[in-house]
């Protein structure tokens, strides 16, 4: 849960290191050993409650099938190729959308970050477009692309682009002028300066943007499938719901949750890798 602040403010991560956060001792060391155990107890209790509630009749099993039934249904589905095709479609929309947004945002972000005079003309437009919920584009996507994957991509790219773009701009703005001038005085060319000064400073911001965008991309990829009906887990859920297959709905939701957890873990691992290198280099430079 240590990573969750970064879930929060787009600017959160880099700010936290400068603000009040940082050096205090993390949590109580004595609970360290019992922590996974408590977590396991929590999971068991959660599953146990889920199992027990429908059996006691507190909530009808029609609306909340017991955990065992849902997990069995998920296991059954996991043996069908259709399930994995749906997972693949969802991941494809996610990955492709994220990649397009990433490239576009990095290119535009660095270009406009380097050209503050041009950037001044774009600020009002960006500030207006950014908070527009991407779901507003759903009808347009339907009309233009139907249930094609391009519908999914339109929503994913629109939502993710702003998240990453804004982070890149923050990152470029955070470049230490002294470092920049030092690089200049040693005769580093424009490209070398970008490589050795601007890029390393921007990297943590960029990673924050990517982490936020990865979660948002999954949300919108599934939204498009759910509402527009492009292929993927979202559509499977809509189908299961309209045919009244309650335990299937639950099973697929659990599957999306698992997908979400995997994506979170993957992105965090990536960020740790990238930024560990980064902090070590930086630590040397500033110490």
């Amino acid at each position: 849960m240590t990573e969750t602040t970064a879930q929060g403010p787009p600017r959160g991560r880099p700010e936290a290191s400068k603000g009040t956060g940082g050096r205090r001792p993390r949590g109580a060391a004595r609970t360290g050993s019992s922590k996974p155990l408590l977590g396991a107890v929590g999971v068991m209790a959660f599953l146990g409650t889920w199992e027990a509630v429908p059996h006691t009749g507190l909530v009808s099993a029609r609306y909340l099938p017991p955990a065992s039934e849902v997990l069995a249904s998920l296991a059954r589905r996991a043996t069908t190729p259709g399930f994995w095709t749906a997972v693949g479609d969802t991941l494809l929309g996610w990955a492709l959308g994220l990649a397009i947004a990433f490239v576009a945002a990095v290119v535009l972000g660095f270009a406009l970050g380097a050209l503050p005079r041009v950037r001044a003309f774009t600020t009002s437009t960006v500030d207006f477009l950014r908070p527009i919920p991407s779901v507003a584009l759903i009808p347009l996507a339907v009309l233009m692309y139907g249930t094609d994957i391009r519908s999914t991509l339109l929503l994913v790219v629109y939502a993710c682009f702003w998240l990453i773009y804004i982070q890149v701009l923050y990152g470029v703005a955070d470049v230490d002028p002294v470092a920049e001038q030092t690089a200049r005085s040693y005769g580093l060319g424009r490209l070398a300066r970008i490589r050795h000064v601007v890029w390393p400073t921007t990297l943590p911001y960029l990673m924050t943007g990517v982490r936020l965008a990865a979660a948002v991309a999954l949300i919108l990829s599934i939204t498009a499938q759910l509402i527009i009906g492009s292929p993927g887990i979202g559509r499977e859920i809509a189908v299961a719901q309209s045919s009244g297959a309650v335990s299937s709905v639950y099973a697929l939701i659990v599957a999306t949750g698992a997908l979400g957890v995997l994506i979170n873990i993957g992105v965090r691992a990536l960020e740790r890798r990238v930024l560990r290198w980064h902090t070590s280099v930086r630590g040397e430079a500033t110490a």
């Binding site: 849960m1 396991a40 929590g42 999971v43 949300i219 509402i227 939701i253």
Partner: peptide, 16 residues
């Protein structure tokens, strides 16, 4: 510590 893994899962579910 008790709730962390469960929360980690619940928050990963795409809300839609």
């Amino acid at each position: 510590a008790l709730f962390e893994p469960v929360l980690e899962f619940l928050r990963a579910i795409p809300p839609p």
